[in-house]
Design a protein around this nucleic acid. Sequence first.
DNA 1: TATTGTTATACTCTATAACTATA
DNA 2: TATAGTTATAGAGTATAACAATA
Lengths: 173, 173
Amino acid sequence: MTVSKTAEKSSEKPADAAKGRKDTGEPQAEALQLGELSEQLGYVLKRAQLKVFENFLRCMASLQLTPAQFSVLLLVEKNPGRNQTEIASTLGILRPNFVAMLDNLESRDLCARIRSTNDRRSHILVLTDKGKAVLARAKKLVATKHEARLNDLLGPANRESLIEMLSKIANEF
Amino acid sequence: MTVSKTAEKSSEKPADAAKGRKDTGEPQAEALQLGELSEQLGYVLKRAQLKVFENFLRCMASLQLTPAQFSVLLLVEKNPGRNQTEIASTLGILRPNFVAMLDNLESRDLCARIRSTNDRRSHILVLTDKGKAVLARAKKLVATKHEARLNDLLGPANRESLIEMLSKIANEF
DNA sequence: TATTGTTATACTCTATAACTATA
DNA sequence: TATAGTTATAGAGTATAACAATA
């Protein structure tokens, strides 16, 4: 057990916070006031990101793909013929840390490293047939279970607006 | 050096990605296509969150406060008389992990643990005078340097809308 | 001399089990 | 028996230095 671990986290659900006390007849502590915290960009952003990743993992449980692994498969599919350094740096992954990640995907026969003939230092990355099939299934799951959830919650217009604003922050903040 | 480490990260800036190649006159590899990735909620959310935290750390460099530490001080100020478990769980921090965090804040004389007289197992958390002063300065820095940046980028209406949508995701996704 | 992939390593976050002192 | 704070520990994620093969 090293590749799995699925989505069975417990963590600390802030929603459940300050509960977990037996209802004795005592002074009874109320839920805490978040105050200015609920208006702090970083706080709400981090909280939302954790929720979204949790949901992603649940949706992808059958395929055992993390958000990071999914992003690698997507990028390799969209950019055939690129090497490890290019894929990793585009995703903000440091090359040393990308090695174990690729070892994992390659051991599951989802992608392969191919020694470049032009530059024998480079490993060109490609999806295997299984990798393409898994990615196709993953895309459907993400679209129907994960991203659809966002539409339900915000509506299509707001969803688009949200993605746009987050992209702007990611690129220009 | 254990408390500091400031904000001097290098990481992998995706903006700089796929550059770092000398301009020889060769076929020249172009920037990669993000494709569907730029529409993936989790991807753009994570990217935005990292940028926002980086900016937060830069803005708070003079006070040496991380986003997590800032959230603790805010919550303790807003909810005097609460114990470690209550503050930690509200922030989604596990009690064991909260110990070192409080040790740090207490060693810097920003907050203090007070043994409760009602229940001698509990540590009531309070801000010290220095803690209150530092938090006041922190709030000003966040408002004028950090959150103001968001207003410049999106405008007040969009800023409000963004926070609202993120809160909804954090609470209901 | 510089770059690609890699190893080794370290530091932060997060997570769980179990101890202690109190209740 | 249960809870608050704590310790120890383990696992992810992320960071840097340095090495071998290749350019």
